[in-house]
């Protein structure tokens, strides 16, 4: 059931993601959700920070877009939403942007439970600046700034945002297409703060340094790594090693 999503793309701009970048898939899945819900995209405001993922809405979405500063997208979005609550406001940005430099804004927006939908494109590194380590980089992974392997554990963003008080919290990979579309729909229907961590492969920066193979191999390995939350409950910690638990962690839609 292929839909014409072109209507949501700004005329005259061409998508410029690297070959195999998961952000291109994520862009389509977000638009699919908007389309399914029959939301008038002109009623929406898209806010992004700085980074590859921040390009998803700006300039590509043919709607009101606010392309801001590195790390500050949620703060900008808070002002717009507080002043005009009618703006259906979605923040789309990278993990470095939202979790590292902008981590404090993420925590406080979740705490305030402000009616924003935040989609965090987690590619496990800083792609735009050349593949440096991020708070989401798995321990041991190689990046431009961890040539010996990342010595630190990655942060569990969903746990963080959940603990801070968000209404809806979920994690899915761009390989879990229907679940992710569904999740974006639920997030958009949530009143209060909704947060989705979208796992998206970055073959050019992260994949290459970690010998994860061609883009197709990276997608395949992501499929193998993702375990649904419900299935994970029956697995031992040994079996869960290296796995990524996906699903809905707080479901405010009821």
């Amino acid at each position: 059931m292929a839909r014409d999503l072109k209507q949501y793309l700004r005329p005259g701009v061409t998508l410029s993601f690297c070959p195999g970048c998961g952000d291109r898939i994520l862009l389509r899945l977000i638009l699919r959700a908007i389309d399914e819900l029959k939301i008038d995209i002109d009623d929406m405001l898209f806010v992004s920070g700085i980074g590859c993922a921040a390009w998803i809405p700006s300039p590509y979405f043919n709607a009101d877009t606010l392309h801001t500063l590195h790390g500050r997208a949620i703060a900008f979005a808070t002002g717009a939403k507080m002043f005009n609550p009618k703006l259906k406001t979605m923040v789309i940005s990278g993990d470095g942007d939202l979790a590292d430099i902008g981590g404090n804004h993420l925590i406080h927006a979740a705490r305030r439970n402000i009616d924003l939908t935040v989609i965090c494109a987690n590619n496990m590194n800083y792609a735009m600046t050349g593949g440096q380590v991020c708070s989401t980089t798995p321990q041991g992974a190689f990046t431009q700034t961890t040539p010996q392997g990342n010595p630190y554990r990655p942060i569990d963003l969903c746990k963080l945002v959940q603990a801070a008080g968000a209404t809806y919290v979920a994690r899915y990979s761009v390989t879990q297409r229907f679940a992710l579309i569904n999740s974006v729909e639920r997030a958009l229907q949530t009143r209060g703060f909704s947060f989705i961590e979208a796992l998206t492969p970055c073959p050019v920066q992260f994949g290459r340094r970690n010998q994860l193979g061609a883009p197709a191999d990276m997608l395949k390995s992501l499929v193998g790594k993702c375990v649904m939350k419900e299935d994970a409950e029956n697995l031992s910690s040994e079996e869960l090693k290296g796995k990524i638990i996906t699903g809905e962690f707080s479901d405010g839609c009821g």
């Binding site: 801001t68 500063l69 002002g79 939403k81 002043f83 005009n84 404090n104």
Partner: peptide, 26 residues
Amino acid sequence: AVSIQMEDEIASICSCIGASWAGAKA
């Protein structure tokens, strides 16, 4: 009118800019 105590001054100025584009004198 809308007022809010933000988490820091960075958030304060950024949210004012967002509000300004939403039509507010900020």
